[in-house]
Amino acid sequence: MAALRRPHPARFQAFDLLATMVAVVGPDGIVIFANAALEDAVGLSWRSIEGTVLRNHFADGDELQLALDGARGNHFAALRYDGHLVRHGGGLIPVHVIVAQTERAGQIIVELLPLEQQARQDREERLADHTRANKELFRNLAHEIKNPLGGIRGAAQLLEMEIEGRELREYTQVIIHEADRLQLLVDRLLAPHRHARMVGDVNIHEVCERVRSLVLAEFPRGLRVVRDYDTSIPEFRGDREQLIQAVLNIVHNAAQALAERIARGDAEIVLCTRVQRQVTIGKQRYRLALELHVIDNGPGVPESIKERVFFPLVSGRDGGTGLGLTLAQTFVQQHHGLIELDSRPGRTDFSILIPLP
């Protein structure tokens, strides 16, 4: 739509470069300009928006009208409130509305921020803070645990050499085994922060096919892994092995959560790839992004851990280490992307977003 825009004064044309939705209304509340982001959001061209009454595009139009009247009466310089924009063809878009005066008499700027986008940015900031804190925690943890572990293991080995009885040696073997297990746990915590990335051209469908073959080899019966690929997605620069590990961790978690359905023979995991346009990740706007969904028909993520599922050592499964999703999120973040979760009983969707060139 934006490519065929009607010429406007330069002060309006600049609004087309913004990711947020913007409308400029005249004294009578009629839209004299709507930017490209607003067109895309409501599903109408500028020809269908400009010249209409802006309040008619809102489910709560009376509230917008009060705000416009207040701006025209100089009761405030800017007003903020939450409303609902009506999408053409049905559906409401929750938005944060900012109504502000302009230098031209009677003209008012209305800026609309999707509430979902704002909430998502808040989640991304919290996640980034947690990732930085985890990185420092892991480094300190390694220092505090690795040296004592080596001493414990070495002492157990020396003690085993002095013991003649087989029963007593079983105790030293327990010590050695548990020391090795803890060492492996620490190594896994540090893995994404220790090794250099091997960057090259990545085909996301080669990644998906590798993961699919690995999971079906482990669960050969009772599980169906469905492909739903957009084969037009271009290659991008990234670490192929990191991405394989990230997707494998998510798919493997899904397969383990499907244990009961696998036993019944009706378990399903869907690998779905799509291209998203004009995506904001970490306050950075990207023209294109890869969207990879891993969807399963399992019981869903427990509500008690849903908000903490990417934190280290948080697991909803007995015997789980709680590291798989933490590592997956870290690997994806190193590609300037993120993983999001939408889960309810019968459908869990892990969505990976990675910017494309």
Rank of each mutant, 00 (worst) to 15 (best):
V42H: 03
F76S: 05
L341G: 06
V301Y: 14
G337D: 02
L159Y: 01
D266T: 07
I354S: 12
R5E: 11
E39H: 13
K135Q: 15
I233E: 01
V275T: 12
L290C: 02
H8D: 01
I108Q: 01
A289R: 04
H335Y: 02
L85D: 10
P220R: 08
R181F: 00
A155F: 11
I305Y: 02
V275S: 13
L338H: 09
L38K: 04
T52H: 03
T231E: 09
T321E: 13
A217K: 15
T20A: 02
P148W: 08
A246R: 13
E170D: 09
L141P: 02
N35I: 14
H88G: 01
T321N: 10
E235R: 15
A289N: 00
R287K: 11
R47L: 13
G106K: 00
R347D: 04
L141E: 06
R308N: 13
R169L: 11
H252G: 06
E218A: 12
P299A: 06
I49A: 01
A156I: 07
L4W: 03
G322C: 08
G51R: 04
V275G: 04
G70K: 07
A246P: 10
R166K: 14
Y81V: 05
L182M: 10
I250L: 15
L190F: 02
F58V: 10
I204V: 13
G29Q: 01
L271S: 10
G90F: 02
G324Q: 01
M21V: 01
G316H: 08
H193D: 12
V24I: 14
A59R: 15
A263V: 08
I269G: 07
I93R: 09
R6A: 05
R166W: 14
L184S: 14
R261N: 13
P345F: 05
I176N: 03
A179C: 13
G322P: 08
G73C: 00
I339T: 08
V226D: 04
L223S: 04
A217D: 14
L168T: 06
H252N: 12
Q284N: 07
R264E: 11
E162P: 00
L184K: 15
A59K: 14
Q118M: 11
V247Y: 07
L271F: 09
N134I: 06
I244D: 03
V294T: 14
R132C: 02
H177S: 09
P192C: 00
L168K: 03
F76H: 00
L189Q: 10
D122V: 05
P357K: 12
E116H: 05
L325Q: 10
P234Y: 05
G150N: 09
H177Q: 11
A267T: 07
I233S: 07
L323M: 13
I152F: 15
R347I: 02
L290R: 00
I352E: 00
N147W: 14
K135S: 07
L85R: 06
I32L: 06
Q183T: 14
N253T: 13
